[in-house]
Nucleic acid binder design. Structure first.
Lengths: 246, 246
DNA sequence: TAGTGGTCTAGACCACTAC
DNA sequence: TAGTGGTCTAGACCACTAC
């Protein structure tokens, strides 16, 4: 169950090429070796190389031109927030160059509200575990997150509450403690004026608007396992992302 | 140059399966036929079926379970905004169920500002074409867009200005008139208080915050070809999207 | 026209799950 | 244990571009 399996070859190739680009073994704007040459050099099939390059193209790290070649996209190297990483706040903050810190403000286990039971599709009154966390960049609070998930995911919910630490990304926590993998999420983005709560906890001296992200995460069996609401100080952080059409 | 080429087989397969799901030939939550069965039925290789299913899985329309099967994801069918379609405002509005209308408020050709010339990487003072457009949902104004792109993309910029109509998506326009295809975009999402301009043009009776999207679009040669700033009334429209981890 | 990326096939073997 | 999706290969042909 917990044996270390080797990474798939395609993933290894993705990593190798990605590191060559980031390490400037392939310079910004430069044309990569052809797919056939890469396949020969790395001792894999061309299909495997194409699979790896496809991943990098979807991230925007390379641009492909039929009949010509594959080029390094210098602009994307500095853009910290690829879409998939958008919700990993610690990595997001660190990528921009700040020191990230996580603080657990509250954690509780209590009956679900009507909204929670609807979104998480559990019976009203059954227990949810709730967390209120705060993320800081260089000591300045920038993100406020309220999470709630069904207590039934854990064998022993009360014990679970003690084990939860602020540092561990919820994605990891849900996998390690509950064997729950997140398959997809439905996300709602809004602009809001901060409430009293947010003004105080984000230490705002004004009431400039915040980004609010409401997210419901589903597992591979299509069951909701996490409801999360984040208030996001875009003045300090900036929510940047890359969109590709491949 | 303009001959109609048949769609790639994988794309056709994607379309067929997608339509079967949306038309409930495969019911919500149901397991699809196995990849081998689909391949046989459609007369294509399993690799082609997998390529098509990969696209649908990335959109969140199906969930794959190794050793088990591929399942229809009923939740996603109603979510209008897949990430790729997020910037096609007309489709966005219509998908939610409103009647969409586009209005060209201003169009101009003038020397680039310092910011524009920096973002579009053209020499200061060279001409840009600028558009101010407004999108409505059921007659209610909901999105305000300011576009600017280098006049040099057109052979005859002055003439081009006359040809531009509000209805045509810029993506189409850039392709049809300039043979420019958008490869990727870098997007910035912010929350702002609406300016005088926006309050008036979006006919707001309050000054509730708006979403602001700043986007720079690049072509396949990694040259910026379009700078676009959108103010977005999330109260009426809601910015919803699906994120998958595949 | 040589060389590039884009598409597709047939086949093999593996990891995993429902039964 | 039968059947599923996940990975990988070798090879073919095509569309397209730089030269």
């Amino acid at each position: 169950m917990l044996v270390e399996r080797p990474q798939p070859i395609a993933r290894q190739v993705t990593k190798i090429i990605s590191e060559r680009i980031r390490g400037q073994d392939y310079s910004p704007g430069e044309r990569l070796p052809s797919e056939s040459d890469l396949a020969e050099e790395l001792g894999v099939s061309r299909a495997t190389v194409r699979s790896a390059l496809g991943k990098l193209a979807a991230e925007g790290l390379v641009l492909r031109k039929q009949g010509d070649g594959t080029y390094v996209n210098q602009h994307i190297i500095d853009v910290p927030t690829r879409m998939g990483a958008m919700w990993d706040f610690v990595r997001l903050i660190e990528n921009i160059g700040y020191a990230a810190a996580t603080q657990m403000l509250e954690s509780d286990i209590r009956p679900a509200t009507a909204q929670e039971s609807a979104l998480l599709r559990i019976t009203t009154g059954s227990n949810v575990i709730t967390l209120k966390r705060r993320f800081s960049a260089d000591g300045k609070p920038v993100i406020l997150v309220n999470d709630s998930f069904p207590a039934s995911l854990f064998d022993d919910p009360t014990k679970a509450l003690e084990q939860i630490e602020g540092e561990l990304p919820l994605r990891e926590l849900l996998w390690q403690k509950c064997r729950q993998a997140i398959a997809y999420a439905i996300i709602n983005i809004k602009a809001v004026l901060p409430g009293e709560d947010a003004i105080q906890l984000l230490e705002r001296d004004d009431s400039a608007p915040l980004l609010k992200l409401e997210q419901v995460f589903y597992n591979n069996d299509n069951l909701p396992i996490l409801y999360s609401v984040s208030c996001y100080d875009d003045k300090t952080l900036g929510l940047r992302l890359v969109q590709t059409w491949v």
